[in-house]
Measured scan of single mutants.
Amino acid sequence: SQTQRTQDENEARRIAEEWKRRGYDVEVRNRNGHWEVTWD
């Protein structure tokens, strides 16, 4: 799996939607004030 971090929730949601469209299983988490998008 791969993880991308961002400070911006909207960006995190956009990234998550992009990977979901490509057929990946995606998880979005808030950790210590930043957002992590993990896909595999």
Rank of each mutant, 00 (worst) to 15 (best):
G33V: 02
R14H: 06
E36F: 10
A12F: 02
A16G: 05
N32S: 07
D40I: 15
Q2D: 06
Y24F: 11
D25I: 14
E11A: 07
H34K: 09
N32R: 05
D40T: 15
R31N: 12
E9T: 02
R13D: 03
W39D: 01
W39I: 14
Q4M: 15
E9M: 06
W39V: 10
E11G: 03
S1F: 14
W19I: 05
W39R: 11
T3F: 12
W35F: 05
G23Y: 02
D8V: 03
V26L: 03
E36H: 04
D25Q: 14
G33A: 03
V26H: 01
R21F: 06
T3E: 05
W19E: 01
Q7N: 12
R22N: 06
R22W: 07
N30R: 12
H34P: 01
E17L: 09
E36G: 02
V37W: 02
Q4L: 15
Q4F: 15
R29C: 11
V26I: 04
T6I: 10
G23A: 01
D40Y: 15
H34M: 15
N30D: 08
R21L: 09
D8R: 04
V26A: 08
R22P: 00
Q4E: 09
A16K: 04
W39P: 03
E9W: 09
V28K: 01
T6Y: 15
A16N: 01
E18K: 09
R22K: 11
E9L: 08
R31T: 11
V37E: 00
N30Y: 15
Y24R: 04
E11P: 00
R29K: 11
T6M: 09
R5Y: 14
I15E: 02
E18V: 09
Q7A: 13
D40C: 15
Q2I: 12
E17R: 07
E17P: 00
A16I: 04
E36A: 03
E18S: 07
N30T: 08
T38A: 09
Q7W: 11
G23C: 10
G23Q: 01
D40V: 15
W19A: 04
W19R: 03
E9A: 07
E18C: 15
W35A: 00
V28C: 07
T3D: 04
R5L: 11
W35R: 00
A16W: 05
N32H: 08
I15V: 08
N30M: 14
N30E: 14
T3R: 07
Q2L: 10
E11L: 08
Y24E: 02
E27K: 12
H34L: 14
G23E: 01
D25G: 07
E17S: 06
D40P: 08
W35Q: 00
R5C: 13
A16D: 01
A12T: 01
R21V: 08
R13H: 09
E18L: 11
G23V: 00
E18M: 13
E27D: 09
W19F: 11
N32W: 06
R5G: 06
E27T: 14
W19M: 14
R14D: 05
N30K: 13
Q4A: 13
N10L: 12
E18N: 07
N10T: 11
E9S: 04
R22I: 05
H34D: 07
K20E: 09
Y24L: 04
Q7V: 11
R31K: 11
R14L: 09
S1W: 15
S1G: 12
Q2M: 13
G33I: 02
E27F: 10
A12I: 03
E9N: 02
V28Q: 02
R21S: 12
I15R: 03
D8L: 05
V28G: 00
R21I: 08
R21A: 13
W35G: 00
R14V: 07
D8E: 06
Q2W: 14
N32Q: 08
T3P: 07
A12H: 01
T6P: 04
N10M: 13
E36S: 05
E36K: 02
V37F: 02
R29Y: 11
W39G: 03
R14A: 10
E9P: 06
V37S: 00
D40N: 14
W19G: 04
T3H: 08
R22A: 08
R21W: 05
A16P: 00
S1E: 10
W19L: 15
E17Q: 07
V28S: 01
D40Q: 15
N32T: 04
V37I: 10
Y24P: 00
S1D: 08
T38Y: 12
E27Q: 14
Q2G: 14
Q4W: 15
T3K: 08
R21Y: 06
R14W: 07
Q7K: 14
E18T: 07
T6S: 06
W35C: 02
R13F: 09
V26K: 01
E9Q: 06
R5K: 10
W19H: 03
W39C: 02
I15K: 04
N10D: 13
E27H: 13
D8M: 05
R5F: 13
D8A: 04
Q7E: 12
D8N: 10
E11C: 11
V28L: 07
D25F: 13
R5I: 15
T3Y: 10
R31Q: 10
V26Y: 02
E17K: 06
V26E: 00
R14F: 06
R22F: 06
N10P: 07
E9H: 05
D8P: 02
D8H: 07
N32A: 09
A12G: 02
R29E: 06
E18A: 08
E18Y: 15
D25A: 12
R22Q: 09
T6E: 05
E11F: 06
G23F: 02
G23N: 02
Y24I: 05
Q7R: 12
